[in-house]
């Protein structure tokens, strides 16, 4: 009886210890990432200013993602508007499909899906590129050349992601609305004038900016996570694969978790200034 009790206590202690270690590891890793990113951003204000690097990475994160964003945006608009159309048809409210899609896309789906797609594409590439540079000693080479690697490699990537994300989200929103318009007006034959009129009456500029704000934060986070993972790669090709995988997965999870908190933050902000969320 006493042995059994001891064994249960041991198991509970083991679980507590595991939880404690996991939490300590998590907190310490998040702390390291924050220090890493803020250090890079602090150094970015020191000469030499790396604006050419920012443009180069902006071209990769922004221009390079436009096609995939257009494609996914248009099809997301088509799919979401169709599902909403089916639901609203049951309650004879098909005229509200346009505004509902517009609000959902600009405030939630636009920034979140853009974040997920760009994190997978550009974030993954950032982690893989930096990881390869680490295992091939290119980062060490920069270090011993007296080049500040965080300033040269990390800060420009974070700035590029932060600048590109709201623009990509705007493109996603526009393409999704085009997709929704195509489905509603051309396929299920709603009145185009009603569709646009309802959208214009419901959608406010602040709704668009909510999405842009979220996507800017997502850009900063996925770039910081993926560059951190890539920069701290070890263990050859396997290590590069693991760093890329961890960077992308953590970025995606972070985007979805952050979205909830940002939505709440924006709601509290609206309530504080007396506006309707």
């Amino acid at each position: 009886m006493s042995d059994r009790r001891v064994s249960w206590i041991d198991r509970i202690n083991g679980l507590i210890e595991l939880f404690e270690n996991t939490m300590t590891g998590f907190v310490s890793e998040v702390g390291s990432m924050v220090v890493f990113a803020t250090d890079a951003l602090r150094l970015s204000f020191k000469p030499p200013l790396r604006y050419l690097e920012v443009i180069k990475h902006f071209e990769f994160v922004g221009n390079g993602s436009v096609m995939i964003i257009c494609l996914t945006g248009a099809f997301t608009g088509l799919a979401v508007s169709y599902q909403i159309y089916l639901g609203f048809k049951m309650v004879n409210a098909v005229n509200l499909v346009g505004p509902t899609v517009a609000l959902g896309i600009t405030r939630e789906l636009g920034p979140v899906l853009t974040g997920l797609i760009v994190a997978a594409r550009a974030g993954g590439a950032m982690a893989a590129r930096l990881g390869t540079m680490r295992v091939n000693e290119q980062i060490d080479a920069l270090d011993v050349m007296g080049v500040n690697t965080k300033q040269y490699l990390i800060a420009p990537r974070i700035y590029a992601a932060v600048a590109a994300m709201p623009l990509l989200t705007a493109i996603f929103d526009a393409m999704a609305m085009l997709g929704a318009w195509f489905l509603c007006v051309k396929l299920v034959e709603l009145d185009p004038a009603v569709f646009w009129d309802k959208v214009q009456n419901t959608l406010k500029v602040r709704h668009l900016f909510e999405g842009f704000f979220k996507s800017t934060v997502f850009g900063a986070f996925f770039a910081a996570i993926c560059t951190y993972r890539g920069f701290h790669t070890s263990g050859g090709a396997k290590g590069v694969g693991e760093a890329t995988n961890r960077g992308v997965v953590q970025s995606m999870v972070m985007i979805i978790v952050l979205d909830y908190f940002l939505t709440n933050m924006i709601r509290i902000f609206y309530l504080a200034i007396g506006a309707t969320p």
Partner: peptide
């Protein structure tokens, strides 16, 4: 330290050239 390393030149095992 970063500034001081201007005094160094290093040839790495794998050359570490920027690809």
């Amino acid at each position: 330290l970063t500034d001081f390393r201007k005094n160094f030149g290093v040839l790495f095992q794998g050359s570490a050239l920027f690809d």
